[in-house]
Design a binder for these strands. Structure first.
Lengths: 242, 242
DNA sequence: CGAGCGATTGATCGCCATCAAAGTGGGTGG
DNA sequence: CCACCCACTTTGATGGCGATCAATCGCTCG
């Protein structure tokens, strides 16, 4: 077999990219870099694209890379030995994947929609962090906010009813969905009902049923399967407990 | 009222302390400090003691201090508006309390047993971290391991049965309990059944019943209410799923 | 038009919560 | 020292929420 241009041969390796005009320029870890630092940083990474359903990494595999999501949604999940699945979170544009001190990925990450990421070798990333201490602060901040989200999810899974879980989830999703001023609050749900169920510790039938309840109560309205309008925000917040 | 010696008047403020001979010297955040740094750090903190049941801080209150646990066990919990409680974790000697970027405590912390902590004003602690960047790394590491633990708990709460939750919990507690070589694996359970139930997303009756099952199966044996011997570790691990 | 997958809706089951009562053990005061 | 109390734990009986099993719907794609 001939040795050929790797970037052309491997669809995972897209062409080099510029950070200027990056859609998550203000959100991501890299926003704490100066222009000069950014140029160095950029050159150590590459772009990567995933199709819906395509895995980025598997729980337990060696964590050779860290990533910043620039487009699309990923599903982060852990499995029990018998196949039961818990979705521990979703990753959206601007999110950093790589908060761990272990050598192994703490979860499986799979594309829910079409996804684009910036990818950096972990070894190089660590070296870069070592020489730019203020990035460490940014990483710590990312870890702390992931931790806060995880604790809220502990309360949801440990103590909320199915109806409360769904209401909380939908409100959470409105915060990560684009809104148009003057229009009703929206939530984009790129994931399947199975993903939602595995995130909320429920079965898909329950998710479907509770969603039905919210619809007949006039609190929300589905526009297709993946877009939802919140017609009564207060009512939904009331059902979310907290 | 007379102004008197504050340290004597306020039982929370114990006398100044030395870090040498500290029981968690090797575990805690401070273990990444040189002797000189440590001397500076120590002088900015004070010791604090809590009686069983006594609160250290309340969820939502201003987080004016950070702490390192030197003795005893704390219960970390969050409440829903109607009083349902989720214990998000326990803190043991060596653990650091203060991983957050918010101004408010992310949970209520209460002493389970008699507790001793080292206490630092958050403002001073932050300043110290600023001038000692390698501490930031240590903090990040603490956040990452808390995050990993929280994700495991998400799987437990979202997907495990009552029996599996209890088995996982007991095995987890053996890791934080002192062991004597040659003797059976032990777990010290300083917290009440209510605390365990609120940690595992169950009710106390269920905890008690499942514990009964493990006893009659010959997997464990209770020695008093707060100490447990693991008679069949493999059997217990089997019941913990994962 | 038919295959196939995801979502919805309906019927029944089972795990764990709830309600109830008895047991245990540590601390206090007589 | 013992009787009593109170909080915590254990054990028993019943019920409900969400899981499971099953059938249908609806959309996309070949």
């Amino acid at each position: 077999m001939h040795i050929r241009n790797l970037a052309a041969a491997d669809p995972q390796l897209a062409d080099d990219h510029s950070c200027f005009g990056c859609p998550v320029r203000d959100l991501a870890i890299c926003n704490s870099l100066t222009q000069i630092e950014l140029a160095v940083f950029r050159d150590s990474g590459s772009k990567r694209r995933l199709q819906p359903g395509e895995p980025l990494c598997w729980e337990g595999d060696e964590a050779a890379y860290v990533y910043t999501v620039t487009r699309g949604t990923l599903r982060l999940s852990k499995l029990l030995s018998d196949g039961r699945r818990q979705v521990t979170g979703f990753a959206f544009p601007g999110d950093f994947l790589g908060v761990t001190m272990e050598d192994e990925h703490p979860f499986t990450a799979e594309a829910v929609s079409e996804v684009e990421l910036c990818q950096y070798r972990r070894s190089r990333f660590d070296a870069f962090v070592d020489s730019h201490p203020h990035i460490e602060r940014r990483l710590y901040s990312a870890a702390a906010s992931e931790l806060a989200a995880a604790r809220d999810q502990l309360v949801l899974l440990g103590r909320k009813t199915a109806a409360e879980r769904l209401a909380s989830f939908l409100l959470q999703m409105t915060r990560r969905s684009e809104q148009s001023p003057g229009k009703p609050l929206r939530a984009t749900l790129p994931m399947t009902r199975t993903d939602i169920a595995d995130y909320l510790g429920l079965r898909i039938e329950t998710v479907s049923r509770e969603l039905g309840m919210l619809k007949t109560s006039g609190l929300v309205r589905m526009v297709g399967v993946h877009e939802l309008w919140v017609l009564d925000r207060e009512g939904l917040e009331l059902r979310g407990a907290d």
